[in-house]
Amino acid sequence: MSTKPGTVQYHRDESRPNALRIGVHLYAWLVADLLDRLKPNWMGYSSADPDDLEQRTYARMGTSEVSTTLERFDEGFSIQSRMADALRSGIDLSTAPELLADYACERTNDLHDSIRYAGTFIRDTQGLEKVSEMDVVRLIYSTDPMKGIEELRGFKAPITRAMIQRWDDWPEQIRLAGDPVEAFRSLATFEASFEEFEAKVRELARAVEEEIQLRMDIARGK
Rank of each mutant, 00 (worst) to 15 (best):
E133I: 07
I91H: 06
M83T: 03
L93F: 03
A207W: 02
A188F: 12
E209A: 10
Y27E: 10
S81V: 13
V137M: 06
A219F: 07
P97R: 06
K200E: 14
T125M: 14
V181Y: 12
L53K: 06
A96Y: 01
G127A: 13
R12K: 08
E133F: 12
V24Q: 07
A205C: 06
R16W: 00
L87Q: 09
A162S: 15
R56T: 12
S64R: 15
R60Q: 09
L152K: 08
F155L: 12
K130S: 12
Y27H: 12
I218M: 10
I115H: 01
P171M: 11
T69Y: 06
K147Q: 10
D144F: 05
V137F: 03
D124N: 14
T3A: 00
W29I: 08
P50A: 07
R138T: 02
Y10M: 01
E71N: 13
T63D: 09
S186K: 15
E150W: 05
T95Y: 02
S81C: 06
T108D: 10
E191V: 13
T160C: 05
T68M: 10
W29G: 05
S89C: 08
D113M: 10
E54S: 11
K222V: 05
T3R: 04
D51C: 03
L70I: 04
P180K: 01
V181Q: 09
A28M: 10
R60K: 10
E211F: 04
S89P: 02
S78W: 07
V8D: 02
A48P: 00
L35I: 07
D179R: 13
G6L: 00
Y10E: 00
